[in-house]
Simulated assay, not measured.
Amino acid sequence: MIEITNHLDIKQWSEFVHSHSHGNIFQTPEIAEVYKRTKNYEPITLAAIDTKNDEILAVLQAVVIKEMSGFLGTFSARSIIQGGPLFIDGEKGIKALKILMEYYNKIARKKAIYTQLRNTWDTSAIYDVLNKMGYEYEEHLNFLMDLNCSKEILFSKLKRDKKRAIKKAKERGVKVVKEDKTALPIFYEILQETYDKAKLPLADISLFEAVFDILVPNNMANLYMAKYNNTYIAGRITLNYRNVIYDWFGCSSQDYLSMYPNELIVWHVLEEGIDNGYKVFDFGGAGKPDKEYGVRDFKKRFGGKPVNYGRYCKVHSPTKMKIAEKGFKLYKRIK
């Protein structure tokens, strides 16, 4: 018999994710704790258990994100499942997945306007399962960098403009350093500037404080900052799990873009990744293929492998969804 629980044994959960062929940081107990400590974030942690032997058959780590607290926050509430659900192979795994998602949907429709599954691998095998539950698939791109090579070979894969940008940044005296929590306020200030320019809402600083408290001590995250004349001009937070580095949050000061700090930080992370035995650098998404996206152009020039694992979306409240979409358009106009 399969039973759904939200009380997982941490050790058992951690081992399940770590040993899974598609295990990733976004389905771990550590990221759940980060979400738990973040303002306006609410984690949803569920697992399908075989009651005969207490074996985990499937795990789902979601997070409900609101842009503000209180009643108005319900009109921005969305649930994100990144890199999940994870389930065992075979018919038993598919059965567990169905039961798990049905249980999750009952919870999510009370907490979020919609759910988005952000795939980190090819999920075509479960397309029918999710589609029958009302999840619609949409294309979404990403780039993966192969770090299982020498730095010289990796550099040769970069497009000419990126090679030139990295060389110019070094010639102009830009340095990249790995920083501790004391640099977080400066990073967040630059990040706020970047998000304001893009007219996008930004997570509360408590998200990044939790990353330093939970992930950094376990070598699961790093903060890199670019400096010019002792001034911080750009930053990037990466997440690390097994043999993968995930590009998570990046930012740069508009006044120093001519110094090419973004290119230099990415290259520094790639070099360090090779030195430390990582195999893949995951650029963390590159938008929809049919829509222009400047960030995609930046990432593409590093010569990574393009993938289209896509996303699934299920709207739980069509009325609130329409209100939220109008509200976001107004937000962008005001910003």
Rank of each mutant, 00 (worst) to 15 (best):
334 I>F: 12
166 I>V: 13
253 S>T: 09
127 Y>T: 15
289 P>E: 00
14 S>H: 13
307 V>S: 14
18 H>I: 07
87 F>R: 10
282 D>R: 00
17 V>L: 07
233 I>M: 04
247 D>I: 01
122 D>T: 08
278 Y>S: 03
152 E>C: 03
273 G>Y: 03
226 A>E: 00
82 Q>V: 12
198 A>D: 10
215 L>S: 07
182 T>F: 05
149 C>R: 13
6 N>G: 06
298 F>E: 08
286 A>L: 05
80 I>H: 02
55 E>Y: 05
299 K>Y: 06
230 N>M: 07
314 K>I: 09
69 S>E: 09
152 E>F: 03
92 K>I: 08
264 L>C: 04
227 K>Q: 13
326 K>F: 08
100 L>C: 10
13 W>R: 02
54 D>I: 03
225 M>P: 05
52 K>Y: 05
266 V>A: 14
34 V>H: 02
253 S>I: 09
48 A>V: 02
326 K>M: 14
139 E>M: 10
217 P>M: 03
42 E>L: 02
72 L>G: 08
156 S>V: 00
170 K>H: 13
21 S>I: 02
64 V>W: 00
44 I>K: 12
35 Y>D: 01
37 R>T: 08
82 Q>H: 08
151 K>G: 06
116 Q>L: 10
274 I>F: 10
300 K>D: 11
200 L>W: 08
255 D>A: 04
314 K>W: 04
183 A>C: 14
26 F>Y: 01
57 L>G: 12
85 P>I: 07
223 L>H: 01
5 T>F: 01
203 A>D: 00
133 M>W: 04
329 K>P: 08
244 V>I: 12
245 I>F: 09
58 A>K: 12
